[in-house]
Design a protein around this nucleic acid. Structure first.
Lengths: 325, 325
DNA sequence: AATTTTACCGCAAACGATTGCGGTAATGTT
DNA sequence: AACATTACCGCAATCGTTTGCGGTAAAATT
């Protein structure tokens, strides 16, 4: 049994295709008896409407594109999970593509998305201007584009980001509130925009009230090494800007067999998974890919529904208390 | 500028749609001059063929479906990344759906996939027979189904799995080789096929040579609790069947401030990420989602190309030495 | 009995791309 | 000059679904 179509049903029942179509959609023109017969046969024949035909006719694909540098990243895949969840709920499908930060692949991906007439696109982009232009072309073709996380630094586009400054501020205030006096603060690569934002906000919130040692790590391994070095100066708290850094720091803590939180306090900005892997669980400020996804999806829906207003949003980070501080 | 079609080009150039179509496909019937004019205009108008129209006509969607319980899982998203990579390379798109282990959603997903006339389906299924039937219906509709990871326990379907037995055997042999004498072995839900396979192979390899306590945990939390309980009996080694269990076990280890590997040895079957988060890094037998993805994709392609031969494959696991044993 | 209303249902065009078949003009062949 | 060949190109049907419009019978109204 290959694929049942309206025509199959219509010929079996000796009625027209239009009648079958209307019967299945509960159109008032069709008698109950006919509706009954049609829907029964449709069931036994496992009829499913051909989405391609519908999309062709309506010129709407009900498919959203989603482009990320790579799926294998906790932040992105929680984002993806979130968007997928909402999409399904709203009868949309998701076409997921990864660029691998390769401009050529990125262009191919865009072509594919256009061929599939996606109804909208979620994109986290490697910051090359040439690519951005290509994305903006989609907007001209009336395909809404929601940039998230890694967004282009130009106005007039929809941007949904985590609240970097707010997350750093919240972390700093939590540290102050706990009466900590000497913080080892480990940030990421100092050239990254995200690092700059978080560092500035963090220092501003600390406001010289307590002693802070700032270092920069660009990998879990270097975070581990830097933590080990600086443990010699007996900080009472370590702040980690990201999950990757937290992972490195925790290895150093374990290596030195330090008791958390008695020997040392830990607080991090995190997506929420890594902190649950330790005992006690790490206190963290959540920058949830999941929430970001919800936000991005809402933004997308309002675009799809015709809003021409540009969204420039950030998620509100939340403190999740573990037992590490 | 909305959407350019063949008709747009044909009317602008004053030629027929068929000619435009053939020109773009470099058909020999069309003169070079015409081809030139057509492709130039197509470029400036940013023409992209409408995938829906093509799929409708050819009755082939060139879209693969991919169903997993949840994306937010290191194993699955490395699998997804792998399959996406290959799909793109072979001009296929990927429609990813998560079931959340909810049978109802699973049925809705299947419906969606059928509506979209996917060319094939990768599925990891929660083991309910009713659902499996639905999947098998796809096969009847000539849609190849590749089950991976969590596969149904029935013959006559394509199954790509990690080498469960081999991984368990390798773990057991490693434990024996390290001269351990008392193992706490934590397995997953005892109804799952994967648990049965790993347990059987593990016990067979141990062959009564040393003392093994077997327990079953169905979450990280229960693994933690079970580990805590059984630490009272002073095992010299803990074997964890999966990453989730490993995470729970490590929290118990940390809670009791045990030194690894001096106080206790740890070995796990893992996808490779979690073990690197601890110091010392956990020795594990790798079951790579990435490799599994490549294998599954190859299997899919041979099905798509018409092979009716059933694939029942397993990946070869590898021991990765950390410092935990 | 003639007319209007109601209840059902079918025709045909449209969405965009592909392709077998047929057609016309220009060129080549005898 | 008559015919055959070549080089180009268009017509129309098709994939599956939707929908405006029109049509025909039966039922209701006068």
């Amino acid at each position: 049994m290959s694929n049942t179509t309206l025509k199959t049903i219509s010929t079996v029942l000796g009625i027209s295709i239009s009648t079958v179509s209307r019967a299945l959609k509960n159109h008032p023109d069709i008698s109950n008896k006919t509706k009954q017969r049609v829907s029964e046969l449709a069931n036994t024949l496992d009829y499913e409407p051909n989405a391609n035909a519908i999309h062709l006719r309506t010129n709407k694909s009900n498919v959203f594109g989603l482009v990320v540098p790579g799926i294998s990243n906790y932040f992105y895949h929680s984002f993806i999970a979130s968007v997928e969840e909402e999409s399904r709920r709203q009868q949309f499908s998701l076409m997921i593509l990864q660029s691998g930060d390769d401009p050529e692949i990125e262009m191919l991906n865009l072509k594919l998305l256009r061929q599939n007439r996606v109804s909208g696109l979620f994109a986290s982009v490697s910051n090359s201007n040439k690519q951005i232009d290509a994305y903006l072309k989609l907007k001209e073709a009336d395909i809404p584009v929601i940039f998230f996380d890694k967004v282009p630094d130009i106005p007039g586009c929809n941007r949904i980001c985590v609240g970097d400054a707010e997350a750093a501020r919240l972390s700093a205030n939590t540290i102050l509130q706990k009466n900590k006096k000497h913080v080892l603060a480990i940030f990421g690569d100092e050239n990254l925009l995200i690092t700059k934002k978080r560092l500035a906000a963090f220092m501003q919130a600390i406001d010289g009230k307590i002693n802070v040692t700032v270092v920069h790590a660009n990998s879990a391994a270097s975070a581990e090494a830097l933590t080990l070095e600086n443990l010699l100066f007996k900080p009472d708290t370590v702040f980690c800007m990201s999950d990757e850094i937290l992972a490195g720091t925790m290895k150093a803590i374990q290596r030195n067999s330090l008791k958390v939180p008695d020997d040392i306090g830990i607080i991090a900005i995190s997506n929420g998974f890594i902190p649950t892997l330790y005992h006690p669980e790490i206190t963290f400020v959540e920058t949830s890919g999941y929430k970001l996804g919800k936000l991005a999806f809402n933004s997308m829906m309002s675009c799809v529904k015709g809003s021409t207003f540009f969204h420039d949003l950030t998620t509100q980070p939340v403190l999740v208390e573990g037992g590490s501080l």
